[in-house]
Amino acid sequence: MEHIRVVVHIGVLYLFYYAGVWIENTFNMMIPGSIIGMLLLLCCFYLKIFRTKYVEKGVNLLLSHMPLLFLPVTAGVITYFHIFTGSGLWLVFIAFVSTLIVMIVSGWTAQFIVNRRGSNE
C-alpha cells in the first residue's frame, strides 16, 4: 500500500510538471515548465484545492534522494573536460568568489532589515 501511494504521489507531481511544460510551450514562455508546475502546485496548496498529504510521500522520496536524480547529468561533465584546462579554471574561481559575495550581501541585507525592525518594535 505504501509503495502504491509513493507511485501515485509521484504521478500527481508528473501531472503538475506536464501541465507546466504545456503552459511553457503553448504560451511560449521563457520560464522552465518545471518551475511553472511548481507554482501551480503552490497555488493549489494556498487555495486549499489540494492538500499536501496527496503528494507528501512522493515529495519526500524525490527530495531526499535528489542527488541520485542528477548524478547522470553531472557525470556528463566527462564530455567537457577540455573546458577545465586553462581558462575554464577561471570559471570555477569566478563561481566561487561570486558565491562568497552573494553570501555576504544577502546576509548583510537580511540582518540590516531584521535588526532595524527589531529596534522599532
Binding site: 509521484i10 510538471y17 518545471s34 508546475g37 511548481m38 496548496f45 515529495v59 536524480l69 557525470a75
Partner: peptide
Amino acid sequence: YPTYMIGGQWIEHLLGPAVVALAMPLY
C-alpha cells in the same frame, strides 16, 4: 556517455517532478 545515458535518462527524467516537489517545503 551517450551509451550510459540510455539508462541515465530514466533517472534524469524524475528531475521534472522533483522541481515541482519543491513547492511543498515552501508551503
